[in-house]
C-alpha cells in the first residue's frame, strides 16, 4: 500500500480555543452586570448596547473591506462586539444615538483599524471611543438616571427609545427632572462645596457601600470577572492589582481625611472600578503580557483612577487611567521580562 498524507507542522492537535471563543466568554461574563444594570436603571442600557454593537459591526465590516481583509473571519472573532458592549456600559442609558455612532467610529476605525486591526491597537478601543465622546459631548454624557426605585418618574422602554433616537427628553419631561448626578459626581461637588462625605452620603443616591444600584452592578461584574479568572480567560494579576491598589490608596486617604476622601469600599463599588478591573484593564492587546507587568499595569490603573477622582477634572477616571497605562505597557513589558529557564 502506498498512500500519500497531508503534511503540516507539529503540534498535530486541534487547538483548544479560538479568539472568538475568548471574546464570547467575556460577553457571557458581562451578563450578570448588565442584568443588574437593567434591573436598577431600566432598559435604556440594553438599547445602548444594541446601538453600539450595530455601529461597531458596521464600521468593522467597512474597515475590513477597505483593508481587504477576510470579513467573515474577523467578524467571527467577536472583538468588535466586546468593544461595543464595554463602550455602551460607560454611557448614560438615555444618551442620544449619535453618541454611540461617534464613539464607535473612534473606537473601531481610529483606535483599532488605523493601528492595524485586531491585535495591533495600542489603546483600548472602547476607552478611546468613550474618552472622545466624554470630552466632546459633556452635556449628553452627564445625563445619568437615578435608580428606578428612587426615580421621580417612571421611564418606560418606549420613552427611552424615543429619548435615544430623538435626543430629546421623553414627552412631557425635562432632562433636569429625570436625570441625577452620579454618586461620584455628588461626592465631588459636595466636597468641593465644603460638605463632608458623611453628609453627602445622606442622599438617596447612595447605598450601603457605593451608589445605590451601582454597588449591585459592580457585584454582577465582579461575579462575571471571577468566572473569567477561573476560566483563565483573564489573568488574576490585573484585577487583583487594580482593586488592591484602589483599596490600599483609598484606605490611606480615608484614614488621613475621612471627611473629603471616600472609604476604600466606596471607591471600589462606585464608578467603573470593578468593570475596569475585570473587563477593561484586562484587555490583552493594549495591556501588558508578562505576569509582573500585569501587576504593575493593574496597580497603575488603580492609582491613576484614584488620582483623577481626587484631583482631576472628571468624577471618574478609569478610562483615562487605562489609556495612560496603555501608553506605558510596552515599556513595562520590556522591563518585566520573565527570567528565562537556566538564566
Amino acid at each position: 500500500m502506498n498512500r500519500k498524507f497531508t503534511t503540516g507542522a507539529a503540534p498535530h492537535l486541534p487547538p483548544i480555543s479560538t479568539v472568538g471563543e475568548v471574546m464570547r466568554q467575556v460577553l457571557y461574563a458581562l451578563c450578570p452586570g448588565v442584568i443588574a444594570y437593567t434591573w436598577f436603571f431600566g432598559t435604556g442600557i440594553l438599547l445602548q448596547i444594541l446601538l453600539a454593537t450595530g455601529f461597531a459591526l458596521l464600521f468593522e465590516t467597512l474597515m475590513l473591506k477597505l483593508r481587504q481583509q477576510p470579513v467573515a473571519l474577523f467578524l467571527n472573532d467577536w472583538s468588535a462586539v466586546v468593544t461595543a458592549v464595554l463602550f455602551a456600559l460607560c454611557l448614560p442609558p438615555l444618551a442620544p444615538w449619535w453618541i454611540a455612532c461617534v464613539g464607535m467610529f473612534f473606537a473601531i476605525v481610529m483606535a483599532k483599524h488605523l493601528y492595524g486591526g485586531l491585535g495591533h491597537n495600542v489603546f483600548n478601543p472602547a476607552m478611546v471611543g468613550y474618552a472622545v465622546v466624554l470630552i466632546s459631548f459633556p452635556q449628553a454624557m452627564t445625563q445619568w438616571l437615578p435608580p428606578i426605585s428612587i426615580a421621580p418618574t417612571d421611564i418606560g422602554f418606549l420613552d427611552g427609545l424615543w429619548a435615544i433616537l430623538s435626543g430629546q427628553p421623553p414627552a412631557g419631561m425635562t432632562w433636569d427632572a429625570i436625570t441625577r448626578a452620579t454618586p461620584l459626581d455628588t461626592i465631588r461637588t459636595s466636597v468641593a462645596s465644603g460638605q463632608t462625605i458623611a453628609e453627602a452620603r445622606q442622599l438617596q443616591t447612595f447605598g450601603d457601600l457605593g451608589g445605590r444600584g451601582w454597588e449591585w452592578i459592580a457585584n454582577g461584574f465582579a461575579a462575571g470577572g471571577i468566572w473569567l479568572m477561573w476560566r483563565r480567560v483573564i489573568s488574576w494579576q490585573v484585577p487583583t492589582a487594580m482593586i488592591g491598589s484602589v483599596i490600599v490608596l483609598g484606605l490611606a486617604g480615608y484614614l488621613l481625611d475621612p471627611g473629603s476622601n471616600p472609604s476604600p469600599l466606596e471607591h471600589v463599588f462606585s464608578g467603573a472600578i470593578v468593570l475596569g478591573a475585570f473587563f477593561i484593564a484586562t484587555d490583552p492587546v493594549s495591556g501588558c503580557t508578562s505576569p509582573r507587568g500585569r501587576l504593575i499595569f493593574g496597580a497603575g490603573v488603580g492609582i491613576l483612577t484614584l488620582m483623577i477622582r481626587r484631583w482631576g477634572a472628571y468624577p471618574d477616571g478609569v478610562a483615562f487611567a487605562v489609556l495612560v497605562m496603555n501608553m506605558a505597557a510596552p515599556l513595562i513589558d520590556r522591563y518585566t521580562r520573565p527570567r528565562i529557564y537556566g538564566g
Binding site: 507542522a9 481583509q69 477576510p70 473571519l73 474577523f74 492595524g116 486591526g117 495591533h120
Partner: peptide, 9 residues
C-alpha cells in the same frame, strides 16, 4: 519559512 496567514502581518 512558515506561510503567513491572511490577517497576520
Amino acid at each position: 519559512r512558515p506561510a503567513l496567514a491572511a490577517g497576520a502581518s
